[in-house]
């Protein structure tokens, strides 16, 4: 009985502090003149009675590992990507090969394989990310659209697979409408791992009238 008791106490002593984390609910990636800008929607909730509210932090860098590292440097807690559900990429980013990006995210332990990737049409991904004050509004929009079939259902693992298979993929596209609200903008078509064109509803046969 002594031995289990000692073991129990020793194990208890190992109890560590829960590390302070900054949970990210969505990410936006834009191209800048000398690299990229990554904006994270960090969730803040100060007490049980408050509602979760987003805060936006941006970092610049030359590649995704560098961007994530720079972003974690300016966050109050550890960058926590496990609850990130959406990655927005701007048109300029999508026009480059997105395969390394997809591969890197797939191999990151923290990132969910079900992360949804969307292309932002006519504007920056950061602007679109910051347009909504509600946490997870974007992921709910994409989930609903995928279920209804109005936007492609392309989580990260599927994007990586199709890009590896033949370099072609389709991703949901979003844009900010005239009222400043996020709205579906058809489908972004990728060929040779790069954005090739956009298709709206009528072109893929699901729209009403052109």
């Amino acid at each position: 009985m002594k031995l289990p008791g000692i073991l129990l106490l020793l194990t208890l002593l190992l109890c560590g502090c829960a590390r302070e984390v900054s949970p990210v609910s969505a990410l936006a990636l834009d191209r800048t003149d000398d690299g990229y800008r990554l904006t994270a929607e960090v969730v803040r909730q100060d007490s049980l009675d408050d509602a979760a509210s987003p805060a936006y932090l941006s970092a610049t860098g030359r590649d995704l590992p560098g961007l994530l590292s720079n972003l974690s440097n300016i966050l109050p807690g550890e960058l926590y990507l496990s609850h990130a559900q959406v990655l927005l990429i701007s048109e300029t980013v999508a026009e480059e090969s997105i395969l390394p990006l997809a591969d890197y995210l797939c191999t990151e332990n923290d990132v969910r394989l079900s992360l949804r990737v969307a292309v932002v049409r006519d504007g920056t991904a950061t602007d679109l990310l910051q347009s909504d004050d509600e946490v997870y509004a974007l992921s709910e929009l994409l989930d609903r659209a995928a279920q209804e079939g109005t936007l492609p259902d392309m989580p990260l693992y599927r994007v990586s697979e199709v890009l590896h298979a033949d370099g072609t993929a389709i991703l949901p596209a979003l844009y900010l409408d005239e009222f400043g609200q996020t709205a579906p903008a058809g489908t972004a078509v990728f060929a040779n791992e790069r954005l090739s064109c956009f298709l709206d509803g009528s072109e893929i046969g699901g729209g009403s009238d052109a």
């Binding site: 909730q45 100060d46 979760a52």
Partner: peptide
Amino acid sequence: RELVPARLLFAVSAAQR
């Protein structure tokens, strides 16, 4: 923490603060 539903996690984390 990745297993905890997001909103629940935020609430519990807030309570722990």
